[in-house]
């Protein structure tokens, strides 16, 4: 039934010092549709592909605003993300109530990381099956954090997780140096292009299947969907026709 004797639970080390259950949980993240995040010196952007179960059903919720200064994007088990996001909302409110302070993003990230770690060291628990990107602005400026089921969290300049996200990451790595100086609109375009890279050939970004979340200095984190993102989609992919260095091929197939 099992691949080996060491992958039954999260409290057993393999002879190589690995914990298979945790590694399998990371696979659940790769089942989820792709999400990307980027930060500049002034803004933090999240973008996500939403799936729908069938033609007539609604689309998933991929980006969840948590507090007025930040939000998360998820890939993997949505119900696990809901548990974590409820916890984050509660912790964020507590910070505002007791200290009149927007919770620092590093702080909230570490709090969910500690929770996730507990699930990997005790029998009867399972690791969370979801990866998160946490993006927004606190007193130290814009931030982007990645959260993994293992409880590993890292602050990133840009990141993509979920199905076929390697393509998005490759795009992000190639444009890494330009993100810092990007304005709001430019950053959104980069995020959308990165997202597009991860899409299979026969799919494209539409107002129905795309979500964008933006936070910035002096700007509350907000979720944009539907017609609110139509202009960005148009602008982004017109640009690419105009001879942008990558994805020219993909664009041609679209048109």
């Amino acid at each position: 039934m099992f691949r080996n004797n060491y992958d039954n639970d999260s409290v057993t080390f393999s002879p190589q010092g690995r914990i298979f259950q945790v590694e399998y949980a990371s696979e659940a993240v790769k089942q989820g549709s792709v999400v990307v995040g980027i930060v500049s010196k002034t803004h933090a952007v999240l973008a996500a592909i939403k799936r729908n179960a069938e033609e007539l059903s609604s689309y998933q919720k991929k980006i969840i605003p948590i507090d007025s200064h930040y939000g998360i994007a998820l890939a993997g088990l949505a119900s696990d993300a809901r548990v974590l996001s409820n916890f984050m909302k509660q912790q964020s409110l507590a910070s505002r109530l007791t200290y009149d302070r927007a919770i620092p993003l590093s702080e909230i990230t570490l709090r969910i990381a500690d929770r996730a770690q507990t699930n990997t060291q005790q029998y009867g628990k399972r690791p969370y099956g979801v990866g998160l990107l946490i993006a927004g602005v606190d007193s130290k400026g814009p931030h982007l954090f990645e959260f993994q089921p293992s409880g590993v969290t890292q602050e990133m300049v840009a990141c993509g997780i979920g199905a076929r996200s390697q393509m998005a990451r490759t795009y992000l790595e190639r444009h890494l140096d330009s993100f810092g100086g990007c304005g709001r609109e430019e950053l959104i375009k980069h995020a959308l292009r990165a997202l597009k890279e991860s899409l299979s050939q026969d799919k494209e970004l539409t107002v129905d299947n795309t979500s964008v979340g933006i936070g910035g200095i002096g700007e509350n984190f907000a979720l944009y969907e539907g017609q609110d993102i139509a202009e960005w989609l148009d602008a982004t992919f017109e640009n690419r026709e105009g001879g942008d260095d990558e994805g020219g091929d993909a664009m041609e197939t679209d048109s």
């Binding site: 007791t98 200290y99 009149d100 302070r101 590093s106 702080e107 007193s139 130290k140």
Partner: peptide
């Protein structure tokens, strides 16, 4: 614990102490 975060200011501390 973290030296990268800004510390509590007087307003934060007043809110906390009044609670």
């Amino acid at each position: 614990y973290s030296n990268t975060e800004s510390s509590l200011n007087a307003k934060n501390l007043h809110t906390y102490l009044s609670k």
